[in-house]
Amino acid sequence: MVKSSPSPVQATVAIAHVTFGEAIRDRILSNIFLFALLLLGVGLLASKLSFIRPERVMVDFGLSAIQVTCAMVAIFSGAGLLGREFERRTIHIALSRPISRLQFVFGKFLGLILVLGLNWILLSLVFLLLLWLSTGASVKILIAAGVLNSTLFLGLFLVFFQNILIASVAILFSTFSTTAVSVVLSIGCYLIGINVSQLRFISAKVQPGLASVFLRSATHVFPNLEYFNLGLRVTYGLPVGWQLPLLAISYSIIFTVMILLLSGFLIQWREV
């Protein structure tokens, strides 16, 4: 008789593997991917209509498209990740085995990260291909002209860490709500996260009172996704020091770990 419990790594990897397999078959994921390709295609078209520096249009359009669609994948896949397990009762088999609910959450999260990583790599490759097509120049020329620069790659890299954070938030919501509610809450959280500086600005402008306190609190409680947006520095290829990416990556990792631990705690109370 096998009486041993699985090692944390073994169980997590097994759950991640199944989650990845399930998520990549999800129709919503392929629809978002097609939507992303469409947006990138529109970016290419827009760049062709521009007379001055068409590559900047492509970079701006392409990076925004990747940011938005990757966030959509993180939200739509993450929000249903645990809720679906409870609704379909597929979690029963896993939780009747000698694994903890926290391990299950980590496994699901790891599987989701693999999906996000694959989606991010594919979209980034398509983006770079379209960027190359929009200019019609060779890679060497693009590098020499500063179109392909370290800031651009850093911008793409930070999109991935932003996704990790968004996915963990979506998982957190899915520990205590249905898929639909988790999607709504995650989108709300995303919209607040990418507009933190505007919220700070508004909170400073409004009359001191409940609204001001609420807005200021929101900027502290919700994850600040502006750390992952290099904005015009990517468009103009301006150099970025090492401090900013280090801060963004650390922020993503710390916030994600905290949210996952909280998810692991909350899921203990959910009825199967």
Binding site: E22, T90, I93
Partner: peptide, 24 residues
């Protein structure tokens, strides 16, 4: 379980690998 709900995308064999891993 009463009504067995499993991951539909897995084959029977893959499913057993999954539950086997969860059992160590």
């Amino acid at each position: 379980p009463e009504r067995p709900y499993f991951y539909e995308h897995l084959t029977g064999q893959e499913f057993l690998f999954y539950v086997g891993a969860l059992s160590g």
